[in-house]
Amino acid sequence: MKVKVMYFARYRELLGVDTERLEGDFKVLDDVRQALVGKGGHYAVLAEQNLMCARNEELCRLDEPLEEGDEIAFFPPVTGG
């Protein structure tokens, strides 16, 4: 399965990338997160307890099922307003 992964704010800066494409045997969103954390280095940030995520521009949980071509985003807690 191919997915598009986006990062925002502190995660984007730390990883030095805002978008990447990933291919793997992903069933739920957490599979993508774990694959990324497994790459080591700064990807360890995606193991943060308060990480937020979205699938196709909607907030979701880590157990969200995925479909081919999904747009996934990882980001720290939001701070607007």
Binding site: R10, F75, P77, V78, G81
Partner: peptide
Amino acid sequence: LKTRAPFWKKESTQDGPRWVEG
């Protein structure tokens, strides 16, 4: 809005730039 809308603030302070924490 403060907990669900995807905005992030980065402040410029005398100690340099920093991301505001949730």
